[in-house]
């Protein structure tokens, strides 16, 4: 009985002494942290996509609190979230235009020439074999490296083609780095009209391998409200994002190859099975 009591007493005294030591150490060696840091981190989306250029949301929060960047640099946050953060910190949100990823290709399996390929099902490996088994050297090869990289599941592989869903895309830019064909661009979210083609080759050559290639026929350039809304670059037309055309341009033009599309309708699958 005495042994048990002695042991209990010893444990109790040891516990009390250690608690005092730990308590004193915690006071003496306390690291000062900004209390706001945790709050701001909680306000951020927490997906750690890296779209802001920092190593995850916590790192970005630190940068914001220390004033090295502004809340609007987060590509994922909704405007309301950004306002909340800036209000909490009492700083200006800064200005940043919302951008969306655009995969500049609409050559799905039914409309393109392809070779059989039986290697690794990943774009970055597939391009090492004959530049990707697609007739067009510049188009989407559809193994979904971008979809895999997307933290928001905003890219769908439909008929061997990567399609961005504008309602899910946050414009973080992860897919842009991943695509081995350098097909994906970040375009202002306010613009809906895009040319879904990336091939700089001549029209006849493109048409041999893809029914929906831009052949630079200039119909859209002529149909646009002003000359510089659609820009001709070699054998390819591009939307001028600094002076964008209105969405009705697609209907007004009647693009013969259907390479001119609205991002929203492209994602909804409106153009499927209608190419000429």
């Amino acid at each position: 009985m005495t042994i048990i009591l002695t042991a209990l007493l010893f444990a109790a005294v040891l516990g009390a002494v250690l608690a005092l030591v730990i308590g004193a150490a915690a006071k003496a060696f306390a690291v000062e942290t900004d209390a706001r840091l945790e709050t701001v981190t909680d306000m951020l989306p927490g997906v750690n996509c890296g779209g802001c250029g920092y190593a995850g949301c916590a790192d970005f929060a630190k940068a914001v609190v220390e004033g090295r960047t502004v809340p609007s640099q987060c590509p994922v946050c909704m405007t309301a979230d950004i306002d909340r953060i800036s209000e909490y910190l009492g700083i200006t949100a800064g200005k940043k235009e919302k951008v969306l990823a655009v995969v500049r290709c609409c050559g799905s399996i039914p409309v393109t020439v392809r070779s059989p390929y039986n290697g690794i099902g990943d774009c970055r490996s597939a391009v090492l074999v004959a530049g990707g088994a697609k007739g067009c050297d510049y188009g989407c090869i559809g193994f979904g490296s971008c979809a895999h990289a997307c933290p928001f599941d905003a890219i769908e592989i439909r008929d061997g083609l990567a399609v961005v869903h504008p309602d899910l895309c946050t414009g973080c830019g992860k897919c842009v780095e991943t695509c081995p064909k350098k097909l994906i661009v970040l375009a202002p979210a306010a613009v809906d009209v895009h040319v879904y083609c990336n091939s700089p080759e001549k029209g006849a050559l493109k048409r041999k391998v893809c029914k929906t290639a831009c052949i630079a026929c200039r119909k859209c350039v002529k149909a646009a409200d002003s000359e510089d809304q659609m820009m001709i670059k070699g054998f390819l037309v591009e939307t001028n994002y600094s002076n964008p055309p209105l969405p009705d341009l697609v209907e007004k033009t009647g693009c013969p190859t259907r390479a001119l599309r609205l991002a929203s309708e492209h994602a909804a699958g409106v153009y499927e099975g209608v190419s000429k």
Partner: peptide, 13 residues
Amino acid sequence: RPLNQHFKRAKAE
């Protein structure tokens, strides 16, 4: 296993 293609990828990266 597509070992050779893996190595090509690694070299390219």
